[in-house]
Design a protein around this nucleic acid. Structure first.
Lengths: 351, 351
DNA sequence: GTTAGCACTCACAAGTGCTGAGTGCTAATA
DNA sequence: TATTAGCACTCAGCACTTGTGAGTGCTAAC
């Protein structure tokens, strides 16, 4: 028994209908709604075959058919046609994204917001892994007698600062010297390399300075390097799930929301996924909590190097085609924005 | 008919029981659980009186009694006794708070987390309104040929930075000059004042410089001032509501979550509330969405000046006494931390 | 090979009856 | 006179029943 033309046609119709309505699809409904050209009885036969082949399931004897995960996989791989976005949709995405183009992290967060608005699902966006981010310079700046700001600028445009307290006070010249010394040591190093370096001995010649560095500055410097490595995960539109019949059961809604709350689980799952557009359906997901969800994710790049991820999560019944298009368009926009010379401040140019 | 001793005793028992169980309280249950010293029939009579006086309601004829909002108000004003936290609880709060004492905003966010963990409700924390925050200095720092970091440090310890692009390039000396000039002009001014100032004419003598400032720097400077004024609202523990029978109905849970999602509504509501500890019960809340919730909020201060808010939101049935104590202790901690010399970096001292 | 017809299935909604926790009222009691 | 025991009554919640409609699989006719 093979998947002939007609079977595919029936399967496609069932998937369309079920994605739209979330109700099991019966043979009669199918003939009424779609002009397939054969009777309910024929469709019933085809349905029985499709079920045997594993593409459909049956919640109970007298209910209609539901596409299985295998059916969605087939649909995504073969049946799904690319759904071009309308000009209006594209404009909406681009303009909204550009209207909020400040800091790297804010932009990513905003992209997740746009995505959830358009797809009406829960969207997430992960900032890049910054292992490869290269330190540009480090500076210590005076604030008051006991407070100093530590500022680290990296190539990705990520700027980090932290104020730190120096109980015994300090000289401004010392700060300048330290700034130069740190920049000299760390410039051109990746964050990962920086964390592993030990530069304390550079200050051995001056015991007082060494103590200052060791006790006051170094711990903060290391912590800030680590902070910069951190991956941030932004979620948006979690309450959209209440519009989906899949989550009309409170315990399922709750489980879903709890899953989202475990940011580390989510982050791990996302990190594991490869580059480019990835669609995982139900059981294909590694994490047990996601076994009845589908994820569509894509990667965006900053200067072609650092890689972040963005995507949506929802029930396996989702508009794979439309969502895929939206995500692709969104990541294209992000890539462009983050890659043009001048990076994140490119908005200036357009003025 | 007045609220004699016995009526208060009965009311108190009903409130305790209902807060604990969320079930309407019957006269027999009451005698069984609490050793009140009179029979169910007597209690029934008292209950009928209390109901007539507006302190109790009746979901239906054959159900037990439920405290009205008026009853909670009476309880909060008169009956509630201060519930001291145990040493262990206090330690838990202090140590958790101190363990995460980096940047101002992060600390506030973390405080909300702690609060939601302890109360098992949804907690929120609002960063201070920074109208009164005073600018300490402004600096422009070179990143690469076309990129400059603009850094503003304020007295509250809030540091803001933004990278900006200067298409035509720049000289390092220019940046130094501008840093000095900006600091000279803005130092000691509040953010509000700074936004209203116009310092462009200070550069009139040098047309090229003036253009640079006007076109490239000023817009960012103003935007950053405005960003610094922004109030951030952090929410934590929204999914705790799923443990409350009040929200076992999905549509109520949804409404609650939607309300939380409207950050501007929440922020407005919080801003309107006065200083110190405030408890609003049900209908006392201004916002329509909160008419069946209670809010307990308190204010914390930074250097005795800037005022932020922290609190919890939940059903009117909540442990007013316990929660009040927790919030008071938490704000005390925040106040201390933010007021000691050296402010947010005080952790250093303890090492 | 396709389709009409038919018996069968089952979730769901509406209706029924029972139970238990509650009430209000009245009469007896301390 | 205030309190309490007793009793009839109420009603949500649960279990159970029944009817309906949308679905199925199978068989026989086209």
């Amino acid at each position: 028994m093979d998947l002939n033309e007609r079977k595919l046609k029936v399967l496609q119709a069932i998937i369309s209908d079920f994605v739209a309505t979330a109700e099991p699809v019966g043979s009669r409904t199918l003939t009424r709604k779609y002009d397939l050209g054969f009777s309910p009885a024929t469709i019933r036969n085809e349905m029985a075959d499709l079920e045997e082949m594993g593409y459909l399931t049956h919640p109970h004897t007298s209910a209609g058919r539901i596409p299985s995960e295998k059916a969605y996989r087939l649909y995504v791989n073969e049946l799904m046609k690319k759904q071009e976005l309308t000009k209006a949709e594209k404009n909406a995405i681009s303009s909204q994204l550009m209207a909020n183009f400040d800091e790297l992290d804010k932009t990513i967060e905003h992209a997740a917001h746009i995505l959830s608005e358009i797809t009406q699902l829960t969207a997430f966006a992960m900032t890049p892994r910054k292992e490869q981010d290269i330190i540009k310079y480090i500076r210590l700046l005076p604030v008051d007698e006991h407070t100093v700001v530590l500022m680290i600028v990296s190539e990705s445009g990520k700027i980090s600062n932290q104020s730190l307290r120096i109980a015994q006070g300090y000289q401004e010249e010392t700060l300048d010297m330290l700034s130069k010394s740190f920049t000299y040591s760390y410039k051109g190093k990746t964050l990962n390399e920086a964390i592993k370096m030990n530069i304390i001995r550079d200050f051995e010649s001056d015991i007082e300075m060494m103590r200052l560095v060791q006790d006051n500055v170094m711990p903060h410097l290391m912590r800030t390097f680590e902070d910069m490595l951190n991956i941030n995960l932004y979620l948006d539109g979690y309450s959209n799930i209440f519009d989906l019949p899949e989550y009309s059961d409170i315990s399922r809604a709750r489980m879903f929301l709890n899953m989202l709350n475990q940011k580390d689980v989510m982050t791990d799952e996302l990190i594991r996924r490869g580059e480019g557009l990835k669609i995982t359906i139900g059981d294909e997901n590694d994490s047990a909590d996601m076994k009845d969800c589908s994820l569509i994710t894509a990667t965006y790049h900053i200067d072609g190097k650092l890689v972040g991820k963005i995507g949506v999560i929802g029930p396996t019944r989702m508009k794979y085609s439309k969502i895929t298009s939206v995500i692709e368009y969104l990541t294209d926009n992000l890539n462009n924005a983050f890659t043009l010379p001048g990076g994140q401040n490119d908005k200036e140019k357009e003025r």
